[in-house]
Design a protein around this nucleic acid. Sequence first.
RNA 1: GGAUAGGUGGCUGAGUGGUUGAAAGCACCGGUCUUGAAAACCGGCGUGGGUUAACGCCCACCGGGGGUUCGAAUCCCUCCCUGUCCGCCA
Length: 423
Amino acid sequence: MHDIKALRDNPDLFDQLWAKRGLEPQSKKILDQDALIRKAGQVVQEAEAARNKSSKLIGAAMAKGDKEEAERLKQEVAGAKNVIAAMGAQVESEKTILQDRLAGLPNVPFADVPEGEDEDSNVELHKHGTPKNFDFKPKDHADLGEALGMMDFEAAAKMSGARFVVLSGALSRLDRALAAFMLDLQTGENGYTETTPPFLVWDKALYGTGQLPKFEEDLYKTTGDHYLIPTAEVSLTNIVRESILDADSLPRRMTAHTPCFRSEAGSAGRDTKGMIRQHQFNKVELVSIVKPEQSEAEHKRMLGCAEEVLKRLKLPYRVVELCTGDLGFGARRTFDIEVWLPSQDTYREISSCSNCGDFQARRMNARYKYAEKDNRFVHTLNGSGLAVGRTLVAILENYQNADGSITVPDALLPYMGGVTLIK
RNA sequence: GGAUAGGUGGCUGAGUGGUUGAAAGCACCGGUCUUGAAAACCGGCGUGGGUUAACGCCCACCGGGGGUUCGAAUCCCUCCCUGUCCGCCA
Protein backbone atom coordinates (compact mmCIF):
# COMPACT_ATOMS: atom_id res chain seq x y z
CA MET A 1 0.00 0.00 0.00
CA HIS A 2 1.21 3.44 -0.76
CA ASP A 3 1.02 6.65 1.17
CA ILE A 4 -1.44 8.81 -0.72
CA LYS A 5 0.05 11.89 0.90
CA ALA A 6 3.54 10.99 -0.26
CA LEU A 7 2.10 10.38 -3.69
CA ARG A 8 0.49 13.82 -3.73
CA ASP A 9 3.83 15.36 -2.85
CA ASN A 10 6.01 13.39 -5.28
CA PRO A 11 3.89 11.95 -8.09
CA ASP A 12 6.75 12.07 -10.58
CA LEU A 13 9.11 10.21 -8.30
CA PHE A 14 6.62 7.38 -7.86
CA ASP A 15 6.01 7.13 -11.59
CA GLN A 16 9.74 7.12 -12.19
CA LEU A 17 10.29 4.29 -9.71
CA TRP A 18 7.35 2.30 -11.01
CA ALA A 19 8.67 2.73 -14.52
CA LYS A 20 11.78 0.86 -13.40
CA ARG A 21 9.52 -2.08 -12.72
CA GLY A 22 7.95 -1.75 -16.12
CA LEU A 23 4.76 0.03 -15.10
CA GLU A 24 2.96 2.81 -16.91
CA PRO A 25 2.63 6.13 -15.08
CA GLN A 26 0.00 5.74 -12.36
CA SER A 27 0.05 8.96 -10.39
CA LYS A 28 -2.21 11.10 -12.48
CA LYS A 29 -5.09 8.63 -12.49
CA ILE A 30 -4.71 8.13 -8.77
CA LEU A 31 -4.44 11.78 -7.86
CA ASP A 32 -7.34 12.78 -10.10
CA GLN A 33 -9.51 10.25 -8.39
CA ASP A 34 -8.19 11.27 -4.99
CA ALA A 35 -9.13 14.90 -5.71
CA LEU A 36 -12.57 13.83 -6.86
CA ILE A 37 -13.12 11.84 -3.71
CA ARG A 38 -12.02 14.64 -1.44
CA LYS A 39 -14.20 17.16 -3.19
CA ALA A 40 -17.27 14.95 -3.01
CA GLY A 41 -16.31 13.97 0.52
CA GLN A 42 -16.48 17.58 1.58
CA VAL A 43 -20.00 17.89 0.29
CA VAL A 44 -20.97 14.80 2.25
CA GLN A 45 -19.30 16.10 5.38
CA GLU A 46 -21.10 19.41 5.11
CA ALA A 47 -24.41 17.62 4.75
CA GLU A 48 -23.56 15.49 7.74
CA ALA A 49 -22.73 18.56 9.77
CA ALA A 50 -26.10 20.10 8.83
CA ARG A 51 -27.91 16.89 9.73
CA ASN A 52 -26.17 16.67 13.09
CA LYS A 53 -26.90 20.27 13.90
CA SER A 54 -30.58 20.03 13.02
CA SER A 55 -31.00 16.76 14.83
CA LYS A 56 -29.74 18.28 18.02
CA LEU A 57 -32.14 21.17 17.59
CA ILE A 58 -34.97 18.68 17.18
CA GLY A 59 -34.13 17.29 20.57
CA ALA A 60 -34.23 20.79 22.04
CA ALA A 61 -37.51 21.64 20.28
CA MET A 62 -39.14 18.44 21.50
CA ALA A 63 -38.01 19.20 25.02
CA LYS A 64 -39.73 22.57 24.77
CA GLY A 65 -42.81 20.95 23.25
CA ASP A 66 -42.46 22.91 20.01
CA LYS A 67 -43.80 20.26 17.65
CA GLU A 68 -44.03 22.61 14.70
CA GLU A 69 -40.39 23.58 14.87
CA ALA A 70 -39.43 19.93 15.27
CA GLU A 71 -41.33 19.03 12.14
CA ARG A 72 -39.72 21.80 10.17
CA LEU A 73 -36.27 20.64 11.29
CA LYS A 74 -37.09 17.09 10.31
CA GLN A 75 -37.66 18.31 6.79
CA GLU A 76 -34.21 19.88 6.80
CA VAL A 77 -32.64 16.68 8.02
CA ALA A 78 -34.45 14.69 5.35
CA GLY A 79 -32.93 16.95 2.71
CA ALA A 80 -29.47 16.58 4.13
CA LYS A 81 -29.89 12.84 4.26
CA ASN A 82 -30.69 12.69 0.59
CA VAL A 83 -27.41 14.39 -0.17
CA ILE A 84 -25.54 12.10 2.20
CA ALA A 85 -27.06 8.98 0.70
CA ALA A 86 -26.47 9.93 -2.91
CA MET A 87 -23.04 11.48 -2.62
CA GLY A 88 -21.96 9.10 0.11
CA ALA A 89 -22.58 6.05 -2.05
CA GLN A 90 -20.63 7.62 -4.87
CA VAL A 91 -17.73 8.51 -2.59
CA GLU A 92 -17.66 5.00 -1.17
CA SER A 93 -17.56 3.32 -4.53
CA GLU A 94 -14.86 5.70 -5.77
CA LYS A 95 -12.86 5.03 -2.63
CA THR A 96 -13.11 1.30 -3.20
CA ILE A 97 -11.86 1.71 -6.74
CA LEU A 98 -8.96 3.83 -5.52
CA GLN A 99 -8.13 1.36 -2.76
CA ASP A 100 -8.13 -1.52 -5.22
CA ARG A 101 -5.93 0.41 -7.56
CA LEU A 102 -3.45 1.28 -4.81
CA ALA A 103 -3.52 -2.24 -3.39
CA GLY A 104 -2.65 -3.66 -6.77
CA LEU A 105 0.44 -1.51 -7.24
CA PRO A 106 3.79 -3.00 -6.27
CA ASN A 107 6.26 -1.40 -3.91
CA VAL A 108 8.76 1.05 -5.30
CA PRO A 109 12.41 -0.02 -5.44
CA PHE A 110 15.18 1.85 -3.70
CA ALA A 111 16.88 4.32 -6.01
CA ASP A 112 20.09 2.28 -6.26
CA VAL A 113 18.51 -1.07 -7.09
CA PRO A 114 19.97 -2.23 -10.41
CA GLU A 115 17.60 -1.66 -13.29
CA GLY A 116 16.56 -4.39 -15.61
CA GLU A 117 13.64 -6.25 -17.09
CA ASP A 118 14.21 -9.75 -15.78
CA GLU A 119 16.56 -12.03 -13.92
CA ASP A 120 19.21 -11.66 -16.60
CA SER A 121 19.90 -8.22 -15.18
CA ASN A 122 20.36 -9.41 -11.63
CA VAL A 123 23.73 -8.50 -10.20
CA GLU A 124 26.03 -11.02 -8.59
CA LEU A 125 27.39 -9.52 -5.38
CA HIS A 126 29.72 -12.26 -4.23
CA LYS A 127 30.48 -15.96 -4.34
CA HIS A 128 31.43 -18.23 -1.48
CA GLY A 129 33.04 -21.64 -1.68
CA THR A 130 34.16 -23.55 -4.72
CA PRO A 131 32.09 -26.20 -6.47
CA LYS A 132 33.62 -29.58 -5.89
CA ASN A 133 35.27 -31.40 -8.77
CA PHE A 134 33.74 -34.85 -8.92
CA ASP A 135 35.81 -37.65 -10.40
CA PHE A 136 32.56 -39.21 -11.53
CA LYS A 137 29.40 -37.83 -13.10
CA PRO A 138 27.33 -36.40 -10.25
CA LYS A 139 23.71 -37.53 -10.13
CA ASP A 140 20.79 -35.31 -9.40
CA HIS A 141 19.13 -35.49 -5.99
CA ALA A 142 16.04 -37.31 -7.20
CA ASP A 143 18.05 -40.16 -8.68
CA LEU A 144 20.18 -40.32 -5.56
CA GLY A 145 17.21 -40.29 -3.22
CA GLU A 146 15.28 -42.90 -5.15
CA ALA A 147 18.31 -45.15 -5.40
CA LEU A 148 18.68 -44.90 -1.64
CA GLY A 149 15.04 -45.94 -1.34
CA MET A 150 14.32 -42.93 0.82
CA MET A 151 12.70 -40.56 -1.66
CA ASP A 152 9.47 -41.78 -3.25
CA PHE A 153 7.76 -39.56 -5.80
CA GLU A 154 5.52 -42.35 -7.08
CA ALA A 155 3.99 -43.07 -3.72
CA ALA A 156 3.34 -39.37 -3.20
CA ALA A 157 1.81 -39.04 -6.66
CA LYS A 158 -0.65 -41.85 -5.92
CA MET A 159 -2.17 -39.98 -3.04
CA SER A 160 -1.44 -36.35 -3.91
CA GLY A 161 -0.36 -36.06 -7.51
CA ALA A 162 2.64 -34.33 -9.00
CA ARG A 163 4.98 -32.09 -7.04
CA PHE A 164 4.82 -34.08 -3.82
CA VAL A 165 7.29 -36.48 -2.27
CA VAL A 166 7.55 -39.05 0.49
CA LEU A 167 10.85 -38.99 2.34
CA SER A 168 11.81 -41.79 4.67
CA GLY A 169 14.58 -43.14 6.85
CA ALA A 170 17.78 -41.18 6.96
CA LEU A 171 16.51 -38.56 4.51
CA SER A 172 13.57 -37.80 6.78
CA ARG A 173 16.03 -37.57 9.60
CA LEU A 174 18.21 -35.29 7.51
CA ASP A 175 15.22 -33.06 6.84
CA ARG A 176 14.55 -32.80 10.56
CA ALA A 177 18.24 -32.32 11.33
CA LEU A 178 18.45 -29.43 8.87
CA ALA A 179 15.47 -27.67 10.39
CA ALA A 180 16.81 -28.13 13.91
CA PHE A 181 20.27 -26.96 12.88
CA MET A 182 18.87 -23.85 11.20
CA LEU A 183 16.62 -23.00 14.12
CA ASP A 184 19.42 -23.48 16.63
CA LEU A 185 21.68 -21.20 14.63
CA GLN A 186 19.11 -18.45 14.14
CA THR A 187 17.82 -18.53 17.71
CA GLY A 188 21.04 -19.34 19.55
CA GLU A 189 23.46 -17.09 17.71
CA ASN A 190 21.52 -14.65 15.57
CA GLY A 191 18.93 -13.37 18.02
CA TYR A 192 15.75 -14.62 16.38
CA THR A 193 12.91 -15.78 18.61
CA GLU A 194 11.56 -19.20 17.73
CA THR A 195 7.89 -18.93 16.90
CA THR A 196 5.13 -21.37 16.07
CA PRO A 197 2.46 -19.50 14.14
CA PRO A 198 -0.76 -20.57 12.41
CA PHE A 199 -0.44 -22.22 9.00
CA LEU A 200 -3.96 -21.19 8.06
CA VAL A 201 -4.72 -17.50 7.76
CA TRP A 202 -7.47 -15.17 6.66
CA ASP A 203 -7.38 -13.18 3.47
CA LYS A 204 -6.61 -9.98 5.34
CA ALA A 205 -3.33 -11.41 6.58
CA LEU A 206 -2.33 -12.26 3.02
CA TYR A 207 -3.45 -8.85 1.93
CA GLY A 208 -1.20 -7.40 4.62
CA THR A 209 1.93 -9.04 3.30
CA GLY A 210 0.96 -8.46 -0.32
CA GLN A 211 0.08 -11.94 -1.62
CA LEU A 212 -3.47 -10.69 -2.08
CA PRO A 213 -5.27 -9.33 -3.97
CA LYS A 214 -3.03 -9.93 -6.97
CA PHE A 215 -1.71 -13.45 -6.51
CA GLU A 216 -4.68 -15.49 -5.37
CA GLU A 217 -4.04 -18.17 -8.00
CA ASP A 218 -0.75 -19.04 -6.28
CA LEU A 219 -2.50 -19.90 -3.04
CA TYR A 220 -4.45 -22.83 -1.65
CA LYS A 221 -7.76 -21.89 -0.12
CA THR A 222 -9.68 -24.05 2.31
CA THR A 223 -13.38 -24.74 2.04
CA GLY A 224 -13.77 -22.26 4.88
CA ASP A 225 -12.38 -18.75 5.01
CA HIS A 226 -8.73 -19.70 5.37
CA TYR A 227 -5.78 -19.97 3.07
CA LEU A 228 -2.74 -22.18 3.62
CA ILE A 229 0.33 -20.04 4.08
CA PRO A 230 2.69 -19.96 1.09
CA THR A 231 5.47 -18.89 3.47
CA ALA A 232 5.78 -18.20 7.19
CA GLU A 233 6.51 -14.62 6.20
CA VAL A 234 2.74 -14.20 6.20
CA SER A 235 2.18 -15.53 9.72
CA LEU A 236 5.26 -13.99 11.30
CA THR A 237 4.83 -10.55 9.80
CA ASN A 238 1.15 -10.40 10.66
CA ILE A 239 1.96 -10.97 14.31
CA VAL A 240 2.43 -7.22 14.60
CA ARG A 241 -0.57 -6.22 12.50
CA GLU A 242 -2.90 -3.57 13.92
CA SER A 243 -0.61 -2.76 16.78
CA ILE A 244 1.54 0.03 18.10
CA LEU A 245 4.89 -1.37 19.17
CA ASP A 246 7.14 -0.05 21.86
CA ALA A 247 10.16 1.58 20.19
CA ASP A 248 12.43 -0.26 22.62
CA SER A 249 11.10 -3.61 21.39
CA LEU A 250 12.60 -3.02 17.94
CA PRO A 251 14.21 -4.62 16.11
CA ARG A 252 12.03 -7.64 16.72
CA ARG A 253 13.36 -10.80 15.13
CA MET A 254 11.31 -13.97 14.69
CA THR A 255 11.95 -17.30 13.08
CA ALA A 256 9.66 -20.22 12.38
CA HIS A 257 9.94 -23.66 10.84
CA THR A 258 6.73 -24.25 8.90
CA PRO A 259 5.37 -26.02 5.90
CA CYS A 260 4.64 -23.79 2.93
CA PHE A 261 1.93 -24.44 0.37
CA ARG A 262 2.03 -23.13 -3.17
CA SER A 263 -0.16 -24.02 -6.09
CA GLU A 264 2.66 -23.26 -8.56
CA ALA A 265 0.09 -22.08 -11.04
CA GLY A 266 1.84 -20.99 -14.18
CA SER A 267 4.99 -22.97 -13.54
CA ALA A 268 3.84 -26.08 -15.37
CA GLY A 269 6.76 -27.82 -17.02
CA ARG A 270 9.39 -26.15 -14.85
CA ASP A 271 11.43 -28.25 -12.44
CA THR A 272 9.05 -31.14 -12.92
CA LYS A 273 11.59 -33.64 -11.66
CA GLY A 274 12.65 -33.81 -8.05
CA MET A 275 12.12 -31.71 -4.98
CA ILE A 276 13.08 -28.29 -6.32
CA ARG A 277 9.52 -27.13 -6.88
CA GLN A 278 6.88 -28.76 -4.70
CA HIS A 279 3.36 -27.85 -3.68
CA GLN A 280 4.41 -28.38 -0.08
CA PHE A 281 7.82 -27.76 1.41
CA ASN A 282 9.37 -26.82 4.70
CA LYS A 283 11.17 -23.61 5.34
CA VAL A 284 12.83 -21.85 8.24
CA GLU A 285 11.76 -18.26 7.81
CA LEU A 286 13.32 -15.11 9.25
CA VAL A 287 11.28 -11.96 9.83
CA SER A 288 12.48 -8.67 11.28
CA ILE A 289 10.31 -5.80 12.39
CA VAL A 290 12.41 -2.64 12.62
CA LYS A 291 12.43 1.13 12.74
CA PRO A 292 12.77 2.73 9.30
CA GLU A 293 16.32 3.87 9.87
CA GLN A 294 17.34 0.34 10.82
CA SER A 295 16.00 -1.50 7.82
CA GLU A 296 18.92 -1.25 5.40
CA ALA A 297 21.41 -2.48 8.00
CA GLU A 298 18.98 -5.15 9.16
CA HIS A 299 18.64 -6.35 5.60
CA LYS A 300 22.37 -6.98 5.31
CA ARG A 301 22.38 -8.61 8.72
CA MET A 302 19.57 -10.93 7.71
CA LEU A 303 21.39 -11.87 4.54
CA GLY A 304 24.40 -12.74 6.67
CA CYS A 305 22.26 -14.90 8.96
CA ALA A 306 20.97 -16.86 5.99
CA GLU A 307 24.43 -17.16 4.41
CA GLU A 308 25.82 -18.52 7.65
CA VAL A 309 23.69 -21.65 7.25
CA LEU A 310 25.35 -22.44 3.93
CA LYS A 311 28.80 -21.55 5.21
CA ARG A 312 28.50 -24.03 8.05
CA LEU A 313 27.14 -26.68 5.75
CA LYS A 314 30.08 -25.92 3.46
CA LEU A 315 27.85 -25.55 0.44
CA PRO A 316 29.07 -23.29 -2.38
CA TYR A 317 26.76 -20.39 -3.09
CA ARG A 318 26.52 -16.94 -4.53
CA VAL A 319 24.50 -13.87 -3.62
CA VAL A 320 22.70 -11.81 -6.23
CA GLU A 321 20.79 -8.60 -5.94
CA LEU A 322 17.55 -8.69 -7.89
CA CYS A 323 17.06 -6.04 -10.53
CA THR A 324 13.98 -3.84 -10.53
CA GLY A 325 12.15 -6.08 -12.99
CA ASP A 326 12.65 -9.22 -10.90
CA LEU A 327 11.62 -7.77 -7.53
CA GLY A 328 8.69 -9.31 -5.71
CA PHE A 329 5.49 -7.33 -5.25
CA GLY A 330 6.21 -6.03 -1.75
CA ALA A 331 9.97 -5.60 -1.91
CA ARG A 332 12.09 -2.49 -2.17
CA ARG A 333 15.28 -4.50 -2.40
CA THR A 334 15.93 -8.23 -2.51
CA PHE A 335 19.01 -10.38 -2.16
CA ASP A 336 18.77 -13.96 -3.38
CA ILE A 337 21.13 -16.64 -2.21
CA GLU A 338 21.73 -19.35 -4.79
CA VAL A 339 23.30 -22.66 -3.91
CA TRP A 340 25.44 -24.70 -6.25
CA LEU A 341 23.74 -27.77 -7.73
CA PRO A 342 26.26 -30.04 -9.49
CA SER A 343 23.61 -31.90 -11.47
CA GLN A 344 22.40 -28.67 -13.03
CA ASP A 345 25.88 -27.17 -13.19
CA THR A 346 24.46 -23.93 -11.92
CA TYR A 347 23.35 -21.95 -8.87
CA ARG A 348 19.71 -22.24 -7.79
CA GLU A 349 17.75 -20.03 -5.42
CA ILE A 350 17.70 -21.29 -1.85
CA SER A 351 16.89 -18.06 -0.01
CA SER A 352 15.37 -14.70 -0.78
CA CYS A 353 15.81 -11.80 1.64
CA SER A 354 13.66 -8.74 1.10
CA ASN A 355 13.34 -5.34 2.64
CA CYS A 356 9.72 -4.28 2.24
CA GLY A 357 10.11 -0.85 3.79
CA ASP A 358 6.76 0.32 5.18
CA PHE A 359 4.77 -1.29 2.36
CA GLN A 360 3.48 -4.23 4.40
CA ALA A 361 3.28 -2.16 7.57
CA ARG A 362 0.82 0.20 5.91
CA ARG A 363 -1.31 -2.66 4.67
CA MET A 364 -1.29 -4.24 8.14
CA ASN A 365 -1.42 -0.98 10.07
CA ALA A 366 1.64 -1.94 12.10
CA ARG A 367 3.28 1.00 13.81
CA TYR A 368 5.64 1.86 16.61
CA LYS A 369 5.66 4.70 19.07
CA TYR A 370 8.09 7.23 17.63
CA ALA A 371 7.27 9.96 20.09
CA GLU A 372 4.40 11.06 22.27
CA LYS A 373 1.45 11.27 19.87
CA ASP A 374 3.52 10.27 16.88
CA ASN A 375 3.14 6.69 15.74
CA ARG A 376 5.02 5.67 12.64
CA PHE A 377 4.94 2.66 10.39
CA VAL A 378 7.58 0.02 11.00
CA HIS A 379 9.68 -1.53 8.28
CA THR A 380 9.38 -5.24 7.67
CA LEU A 381 11.92 -7.68 6.29
CA ASN A 382 11.74 -11.33 5.53
CA GLY A 383 14.11 -13.98 4.32
CA SER A 384 14.53 -17.71 4.14
CA GLY A 385 16.96 -19.07 6.60
CA LEU A 386 16.73 -21.46 4.63
CA ALA A 387 14.33 -23.42 2.47
CA VAL A 388 14.77 -26.85 4.04
CA GLY A 389 13.80 -28.95 1.03
CA ARG A 390 16.19 -27.21 -1.31
CA THR A 391 18.96 -27.40 1.27
CA LEU A 392 18.39 -31.14 1.46
CA VAL A 393 18.65 -31.27 -2.31
CA ALA A 394 21.91 -29.33 -2.20
CA ILE A 395 23.40 -31.65 0.41
CA LEU A 396 22.49 -34.76 -1.54
CA GLU A 397 24.05 -33.42 -4.69
CA ASN A 398 27.14 -31.78 -3.20
CA TYR A 399 27.93 -34.50 -0.67
CA GLN A 400 27.28 -37.49 -2.90
CA ASN A 401 29.89 -40.21 -3.31
CA ALA A 402 30.61 -42.36 -6.33
CA ASP A 403 28.63 -45.25 -4.86
CA GLY A 404 25.52 -43.11 -4.39
CA SER A 405 25.94 -42.68 -0.65
CA ILE A 406 25.74 -39.27 1.00
CA THR A 407 28.28 -38.01 3.50
CA VAL A 408 26.60 -36.12 6.33
CA PRO A 409 28.02 -32.58 6.68
CA ASP A 410 29.94 -32.06 9.92
CA ALA A 411 27.56 -29.34 11.07
CA LEU A 412 24.67 -31.80 11.05
CA LEU A 413 26.37 -34.64 12.89
CA PRO A 414 25.01 -33.59 16.29
CA TYR A 415 21.50 -33.89 14.85
CA MET A 416 21.84 -37.19 13.00
CA GLY A 417 21.90 -39.64 15.88
CA GLY A 418 25.21 -41.20 14.93
CA VAL A 419 24.58 -41.44 11.21
CA THR A 420 27.64 -40.17 9.33
CA LEU A 421 26.95 -41.69 5.95
CA ILE A 422 23.57 -42.14 4.33
CA LYS A 423 23.49 -45.27 2.20
C1' G B 1 -21.67 -28.24 17.13
C1' G B 2 -25.52 -26.56 21.22
C1' A B 3 -26.58 -23.09 25.41
C1' U B 4 -25.32 -18.64 27.81
C1' A B 5 -22.66 -14.00 29.22
C1' G B 6 -19.72 -10.40 27.24
C1' G B 7 -16.55 -7.10 23.69
C1' U B 8 -16.48 0.97 25.68
C1' G B 9 -10.20 5.37 25.46
C1' G B 10 -2.99 2.58 27.65
C1' C B 11 -5.58 -0.29 31.84
C1' U B 12 -10.00 -0.85 35.23
C1' G B 13 -14.85 0.50 34.52
C1' A B 14 -19.85 3.81 34.22
C1' G B 15 -23.17 4.61 30.59
C1' U B 16 -30.10 1.17 27.45
C1' G B 17 -32.24 6.49 22.20
C1' G B 18 -31.11 13.45 22.48
C1' U B 19 -25.05 18.90 23.16
C1' U B 20 -21.78 11.59 25.23
C1' G B 21 -16.06 11.50 21.96
C1' A B 22 -18.03 9.27 25.98
C1' A B 23 -18.40 9.54 33.94
C1' A B 24 -14.91 7.91 37.49
C1' G B 25 -10.34 5.69 39.04
C1' C B 26 -5.38 4.16 37.68
C1' A B 27 -1.31 5.11 34.51
C1' C B 28 1.04 9.06 31.81
C1' C B 29 2.57 14.48 30.79
C1' G B 30 2.93 19.72 32.62
C1' G B 31 2.55 22.95 36.90
C1' U B 32 2.15 24.51 42.35
C1' C B 33 4.34 23.05 46.95
C1' U B 34 9.46 20.77 48.48
C1' U B 35 16.67 21.16 49.42
C1' G B 36 15.09 16.70 46.43
C1' A B 37 11.39 12.97 46.23
C1' A B 38 6.66 11.23 47.81
C1' A B 39 1.87 12.91 49.12
C1' A B 40 -1.65 16.70 48.15
C1' C B 41 -3.70 20.21 44.79
C1' C B 42 -4.41 22.44 39.65
C1' G B 43 -4.33 21.53 34.43
C1' G B 44 -3.65 18.28 30.27
C1' C B 45 -4.14 13.45 28.20
C1' G B 46 -7.69 8.56 22.07
C1' U B 47 -7.38 7.49 16.62
C1' G B 48 -8.15 8.45 11.47
C1' G B 49 -9.72 11.94 7.72
C1' G B 50 -11.10 16.85 5.40
C1' U B 51 -10.13 22.12 5.50
C1' U B 52 -6.84 26.31 7.02
C1' A B 53 -0.83 30.37 6.45
C1' A B 54 -2.09 29.53 11.44
C1' C B 55 -5.55 29.57 15.62
C1' G B 56 -9.34 26.75 14.63
C1' C B 57 -13.56 24.47 12.37
C1' C B 58 -15.88 20.07 10.43
C1' C B 59 -16.60 14.58 9.66
C1' A B 60 -16.01 9.49 11.17
C1' C B 61 -14.87 5.96 15.01
C1' C B 62 -17.57 2.71 21.87
C1' G B 63 -15.00 -5.46 18.16
C1' G B 64 -16.15 -5.49 12.10
C1' G B 65 -20.18 -4.76 8.59
C1' G B 66 -25.33 -3.64 7.66
C1' G B 67 -30.23 -1.82 9.37
C1' U B 68 -34.22 1.00 12.31
C1' U B 69 -34.71 6.39 13.77
C1' C B 70 -35.04 13.34 12.87
C1' G B 71 -31.12 11.40 16.30
C1' A B 72 -27.66 4.99 18.19
C1' A B 73 -22.18 3.27 22.56
C1' U B 74 -27.48 2.46 23.78
C1' C B 75 -32.63 -1.02 19.58
C1' C B 76 -32.44 -4.99 15.35
C1' C B 77 -29.55 -8.35 11.88
C1' U B 78 -24.94 -10.56 10.72
C1' C B 79 -19.80 -11.81 11.18
C1' C B 80 -15.38 -12.04 14.31
C1' C B 81 -13.35 -12.53 19.12
C1' U B 82 -13.41 -13.70 24.61
C1' G B 83 -15.49 -16.15 29.12
C1' U B 84 -18.65 -20.21 31.20
C1' C B 85 -21.48 -24.93 30.73
C1' C B 86 -22.63 -29.27 27.56
C1' G B 87 -21.26 -32.46 23.40
C1' C B 88 -17.19 -34.11 20.29
C1' C B 89 -12.01 -34.57 19.67
C1' A B 90 -5.68 -34.80 18.88
